[in-house]
Design a protein around this nucleic acid. Structure first.
Length: 131
RNA sequence: GGGGCAAGCCAGGUGGCCGCGUCGGCCCCGCGUCUCCCGUCUCCACGGAGCGGGCGAGGCAGCCGUCGAGGAAAGUCCGGACACCGCAGAGCAGGGCGCUGGAUAACGUCCAGCCGGCGAAAGCCGAGGGAAAGCGCAACAGAGAGCAGACCGCCAGCGGCCCCUUCGGGGGUGCGGGCAAGGGUGAAACGGUGGGGUAAGAGCCCACCAGCGGUCUGGCGACAGGCCGGCUCGGCAAGCCCCGCCCGGUGCAAGGCCAAAUAGGGGAGCGUUCGAGGGCUGCUCGUCCGAGGCUCCCGGGUUCCGGCCGCUAGAGCCGCCCGGCAACGGGCGGCCGAGAUGGAUGGUCACCCACGACAGGAUCCGGCUUACGGCUUGCUACUGUG
RNA sequence: UGGCGAGUGGCCUAACUGGCAAGGCACCUGACUCUGGAUCAGGGGAUUGAAGGUUCGAGUCCUUCCUCGCCAG
């Protein structure tokens, strides 16, 4: 799990995923997913995060991104490895973050798993070389 | 004890497991070098050539170690450093600042003091030069608002009319006259209070106060205090302005370098005429570049996509000593405390004080302002008890 | 991150050198009409983004803050 490789960095990557990928949404999050080209090195799913300034200051946005990264890392071994994934945080995640701050566990992780399941990206076994 | 005020400090802690970024080391991987060293390696025409290791620069994963957001990192309100702009010169324009003296790289900041205001005090606040250089503003109200002015009012004498008369005069009314104390308007009415004076009054005269001018003393100075004089209109320069001081523009997306592709291009030198046009700050002066020509050299950063540098050791922090009321400066010793690039500090478990506020670096510093939890110390007034 | 700009009734705009915040659309009431629209008459509605300061007086001048928008990767 090399974190640097599995991050999305280029603006063009984001643009391609938004245009050509499929989207799934819930109250809290929007998920975009896109299957990479054949030649691209497939070492695992790549993650991109988008947290708008409307959600709050830098502290709030960092907190949301950290929780989303942590939640995605929990499911990363089970996600199809040739996909690029972008999560967009909606303002409603703030209530999840607030409740988690109060002591409730796993709310963000559950929200991430819900979207990954509905997008069909969660494979039963982590190793399935079907490309 | 609960208020008020000032100064300083902390920014949850410790441990276990998983996870992230920087730097260093080990291992691994190819690359380069045989101009340096090693080899009982290979070839040889004996000059050398090659191979392996050392060595050098680098890469990704793993392991180990290391360090890893703030007092405001924020707002971007000021000031600098640094970088580039044909080195940025003079004048005007423009902008900023404005009690005094210091501090500083600089400031609109800080320190000490002066004056004014608020407060019972501790203390806090103040863009606080100039209105006898000039222009300008003051709506409404009010008689009068910038050369002041007379509505109500006060006043004696004279003339007209009316009434009364003890024939001396008295009263009323109107016009002209004197006055500015009182009423009234206003944010502001040409010094204030008291006394004398007067027909009524007025700095008309006097005392005190405020203000003005002069002078003496103290202070570097802002200014303070004393004395004397003549008696006296102000407000607004966060209106234009005057005076003094300061300011070139753009900003790390500054700017520099590298690899690949494609069209264009760029630089240096020479240079006849015209000297268009342009740059240097908006203008002027001044100054510089300057197309079209020739020669030589080179890749550049305009467009698309990348990498590296700039990039963190600095007007730095801590301790002691010295100078200074202090801000601060000097000396000695010690320390290294983020450097990311879709952007790193999180998750979970346990315990403790007790549910931890505001809040996250992006070139770097010095401030200001705003947001906000807690602790300690000192000062001041009040209340209760002894 | 750096550099700019703007906030006035529900909406769109005015307010000159500081001096009673004006107008249009919209809204309400009435008239006209069988009813509605249109038209006519009348009316209400503003802490001028917020807080301080200068001034007798601030939408206007000054300072700080808030919100929104724009430009540059």
């Amino acid at each position: 799990m090399n974190a640097k490789r599995s991050r999305l960095s280029r603006s063009s990557d984001f643009q391609r995923i938004y245009r050509q990928g499929s989207s799934t949404a819930s109250r809290h999050l929007v998920l975009y997913a896109f299957k990479r080209a054949q030649g691209a090195p497939a070492e695992g799913p790549r993650l991109g995060l988008s947290v708008s300034k409307k959600l709050g200051g830098a502290v709030v946005r960092n907190r949301v991104k950290r929780l989303l990264r942590e939640a995605f890392a929990a499911h990363e071994p089970h996600v199809s490895r040739e996909y690029d994934v972008v999560f967009i945080a909606r303002p409603q995640v703030l209530e999840l973050v607030a409740r988690q701050q109060e002591g409730e566990k796993g709310l963000v992780t559950a929200a991430v798993r819900d979207l990954l399941e509905r997008a069909g990206l969660l494979a039963g076994s982590p190793s399935e070389p079907s490309s």
